[in-house]
Amino acid sequence: MVQNNQLSGLLAKIAVQEGIIDFFIVLHGSFNQEVVSSSIKLIEERCRLLNFSTSLVTKLKMVSVEILQNISKHQHVSDEVLPYFVIGSNHEGVSIYSGNMVNLKEKNLIHDRLHVYKNIDSQSLKDFYRQSLKQTSISEEGNAGIGLLDIVYRSNQQIEYNFHDYKENQYYFGLNVNISNKH
């Protein structure tokens, strides 16, 4: 969990542990659609400067927009613990780190889905992704319910996640998605 005064500490820890050589976007605060769109633009420009492949850039933008819109749509306001979204690159590719508050119902839903998506074999995930795209319907609010599945699918299951208890019915959801530059 990242208290508001602990973000710089988190960045330093990530940099050392993951060998991050460049943080190219660090967001910390309240997220809305304008922040999401501007951030994706910034990510795109940064990727072009770093000469990333077109496929990697598209994949990164699609995963980023899902994470950012999830946070934006479902964020729970807390003055003490705000959401964050960070992207860093190392020699293997790009890593995305995010954190935001969720309630118990959301925690259970996220855990159940990610546990399945992360642990099934890649062909089963591919089949499940196609089936879900075919079968799920979209809510009036625009939620297709396949955002997490899309993130895991596009990252080839290279994700880690955790939950930290914060207060009653409040948990901090940390997500790390790695996108390799090998594919």
Binding site: S137, G142, G147, D150
Partner: peptide, 12 residues
Amino acid sequence: DYFNTGSSKCLL
């Protein structure tokens, strides 16, 4: 250029 999952369903 790219799209989100909600749009993916609408396109479908």
